[in-house]
Write a protein that binds this DNA or RNA. Structure first.
Lengths: 137, 137
DNA sequence: CGCTATATCTATAGAAACTATAGCTATCCC
DNA sequence: GGGATAGCTATAGTTTCTATAGATATAGCG
């Protein structure tokens, strides 16, 4: 049985965020001690880790809720889970592409050695329109 | 002179967002028509594009405010702008790495052809802890 | 010129996903 | 048993927008 603090340490999810998730119905309310403190089981840890992963990977709370609902029904076909994953795949590939062009741009920028702002790559680069259509979503 | 709607179309920033930026002091209040509607100059378009770029690239509003302030002082050294860019570079490289491992994971996931949830990659992958330390920030 | 469809205006509220605060209560450890 | 540390609830604040309502302006057409 884990206290909320331990659960937080083990999952990397902050304490108020755990309580927030409980309030949002993403995790089920855990047992309480006689003194009203939350005590989490191993299953609770697993579920929160699942949520943490999914959040880190950019899934929205509502998507996660769907996945959790799905995963609670082990005999349903997994097409729906696939759909959710595939949706995110497209979005994520777009993000990667954008970030990579940004990376190049920033790398160039941060080597700028101009003496003053008017010749600074950073400013110029952010002002420059030429690459908009290609680089941004 | 551009109306707010045209400015929105040309920059891809939504109208309420433009007004929000004005309220936040990121862009200066533009001229108004006799009937009190905003009319933007070419300079206004440039500035909003700058902001749009920076936001797309993940800079926080406060960072952008700093950059805008800096760029208004063309004789300052650009070390500060460099610092901001370099800061973001590290963060962005980390994000790219994470997203790439996610991409692989999702790509694998979304090819899942299990008949039902209990064998579905998507669910399993999100439940699996083994790769946490490596894949997530 | 007048009319109507479309665009803007302000002010306010709501959304998403947390994060922080205040004031009070449990637990743990020596 | 007494104090440090951790947890409780409820509420408010943060960030970056987005939506709505009700009123006004502007543009295009005949």
């Amino acid at each position: 049985m884990l206290s909320i603090g331990e659960l937080s340490r083990q999952t990397g999810v902050k304490i108020p965020t755990i309580r927030y998730y409980e309030q949002m119905g993403l995790i089920t309310a855990p047992e309480r001690t006689a003194g009203n403190q939350r005590r989490y089981s191993r299953a609770g840890l697993g579920r929160l880790s699942f949520i943490k992963h999914a959040r880190d990977l950019g899934l929205k709370i509502e998507d996660i809720r769907e996945l959790l609902t799905l995963s609670a029904q082990p005999d349903m076909p997994c097409a729906e889970a696939n759909r959710i994953a595939a949706n995110h795949l497209a979005a994520i590939r777009a993000r990667i592409a954008r970030l990579q062009s940004l990376e190049a741009e920033l790398a160039r920028m941060s080597t700028c050695s101009a003496e003053n702002i008017k010749d600074c790559y950073v400013i110029e680069s952010l002002s420059n329109h030429a690459l908009c259509a290609k680089n941004h979503t």
